[in-house]
């Protein structure tokens, strides 16, 4: 991992301001930011792993858990938020037993929030493995997930 990070750093102008590009680089190759990656970035940049983690958790674009087999994204953009996105999220979070941003311990599902899926006319919406479902009630959302879990 450390070697990979060093290679990524080679392509950047220097250590200054390299943290975010490195995190992006890791996310685009791994799909998420692993514990290993956080440690290695800290080691390479000479900052602590907690500092790296602090920055990574500040930006919602970074995912800190290995994505599940099925990736559930709930939209919390203004329109969805007003039309019940929060309730969708809460319901899913409860039935999967994980807070947003995590993956179930069996690795089957990961739950995330997104800022807009570009389908405001159908809000509230969620996307499961890239397929967008609109005009959802919390119960419908739960049913869609339950179907996948069969």
């Amino acid at each position: 991992m450390e070697a990979k990070i060093r290679a990524l750093l080679e392509e950047l102008p220097g250590k200054e301001g390299a943290l975010i590009p490195l995190l992006q680089g890791v996310q685009s190759t791994l799909g998420y930011i692993s514990q290993d990656a956080v440690e290695a970035i800290g080691e390479v940049l000479g900052i602590s792993e907690s500092e790296v983690y602090g920055v990574a958790t500040f930006y919602s674009e970074f995912r800190l858990f290995e994505p599940g087999e099925h990736q559930v994204k709930v939209c919390l953009g203004t329109s969805c938020y007003l039309k019940g996105g929060r309730e969708l999220l809460e319901r899913l979070s409860r039935s999967l037993g994980i807070p947003p941003g995590r993956t179930t311990p069996d690795g089957r599902f990961s739950l995330e929030t997104v800022a807009c899926l570009g389908c405001c006319s159908r809000s509230p919406v969620m996307a499961v493995d890239g397929v967008v479902y609109g005009n959802l009630t919390p119960l419908q959302a739960k049913a869609i997930i339950a179907d996948l879990d069969e």
Binding site: I47, S48, S50, E51, Y53, G54, T57, F58
Partner: peptide, 10 residues
Amino acid sequence: FAGAISFIFR
């Protein structure tokens, strides 16, 4: 120089 803790999440 420990850097053990940091602001996390937002």
